[in-house]
């Protein structure tokens, strides 16, 4: 990040001129969206009236309106796609580049499924895996990557199929500052995956055991499982536990952490999409500030957990 230039100055001097053509695209997409929705509403109303009164004339109107409705909706989706893609490739890319020119951003990529599965944070295997807004880079000595992810599982009963979300939010992978060989999982106390039976029998996989730690504050917030009791405590030192508890206050209660294959995996549930521009209202500096803050959430994870402290054999 350029120290000499604040984000506000960057927005005013560099982003504002870049935003102008996208504002035109946004308005065009929004207009076609509004027209399409209006036509869809009219078509629907005509159809309802025609059915209620058996009025043939309204059926004809509904069928006449159906074609332009479809055309406008298709136009809307195409324009929206063009706008969102252009906005991300230019505006979001510029913001990421302003924060750190060494970071790589790809709006169409996401964390690889293998990495998601390797994290072991979620017990259910996803039937649908999607995501976007992939960023990778390094902060001081810590290599990291993150993206938005949405994973779902399918429940079929008879002919009907319903989709349920396993995880939706920001998924982060960082290089941990200590060597370790085992697997350690830190779930928030109210994580739905850690149900009554899991707590009672203290094992959700054949080789994992519940880890009892000394800090009452930490124990009130988290449940820890590991396949190596000593290694879990080597990772979760008293000071690291304090930092994790502090980070949890910052990230929100549902955040889960795993320590696998010398990496730290963090899953932060977020309802809204990460770098998604608005369609029906102008993208103010506040919105741009949100994108900027999203990247800083990642930096907070690295800084709060002190991942750049490299005083052990892992450099």
């Amino acid at each position: 990040m350029s120290a000499e230039k604040s984000f506000e100055e960057f927005c005013r001097d560099e982003l504002a001129p870049q935003l102008l053509p996208f504002e035109q695209l946004r308005k065009r997409a929004a207009t076609s969206g509004i027209i399409g929705s209006g036509l869809a509403a009219l078509t629907f109303i005509s159809f309802l009236i025609a059915r209620a009164n058996e009025a043939q004339g309204f059926f004809v109107v509904a069928f006449i309106l159906l074609l332009p409705t479809i055309i406008f909706i298709v136009i809307y989706y195409n324009r929206k796609k063009e706008y969102v893609s252009g906005f991300k490739e230019n505006i979001v890319h510029s913001i990421i580049n302003f924060i750190d020119p060494n970071m790589r951003y790809n709006p169409h990529e996401c964390i690889h499924r293998n990495d998601y599965e390797k994290s072991g944070l979620f017990l259910k295997t996803p039937d649908k895996y999607s995501g976007d807004d992939y960023v990778e880079g390094w902060r001081d000595k810590t290599v990291f990557c993150f993206s938005e992810l949405h994973t779902q599982y399918k429940v079929s009963s008879g002919k009907s199929t319903s989709w349920h979300t396993i995880f939706k939010g920001l998924f982060f992978i960082g290089d941990f500052n200590k060597h370790f060989h085992g697997r350690t999982y830190v779930y928030s106390e109210n994580n739905p995956q850690i149900g009554f039976f899991t707590k009672m029998f203290s094992s959700f996989a054949w080789d994992l055991e519940k880890v009892k730690l000394e800090s009452t504050e930490f124990e009130n917030k988290f449940v820890v499982y590991s396949n190596d009791q000593v290694e879990a405590r080597y990772i979760l030192t008293p000071s690291f536990m304090e930092r994790l508890a502090k980070l949890q206050d910052l990230m929100g209660e549902g955040t889960s952490y795993s320590f696998v294959d010398t990496n730290i995996y963090v899953a932060v549930p977020i309802r809204d999409a990460l770098f998604e521009p608005r369609i029906f209202s102008p993208n103010s500096y506040d919105c741009l500030g949100d994108y900027y803050n999203t990247v800083h959430i990642i930096f907070d994870i690295i800084d709060e957990l002190n991942l750049n402290l490299r005083i052990w054999t892992k450099e």
Binding site: K178, H179, K212, L213, E214, Q229, V230, E231, A232, R233, Y234, T237, I311, W312, T313, E315
Partner: peptide
Amino acid sequence: QRSINETEEQLAASRRFYNT
């Protein structure tokens, strides 16, 4: 020095496990 730091912290972890 890195190895000493690592061993000391691993030792502390194993003592904590012992105490638990």
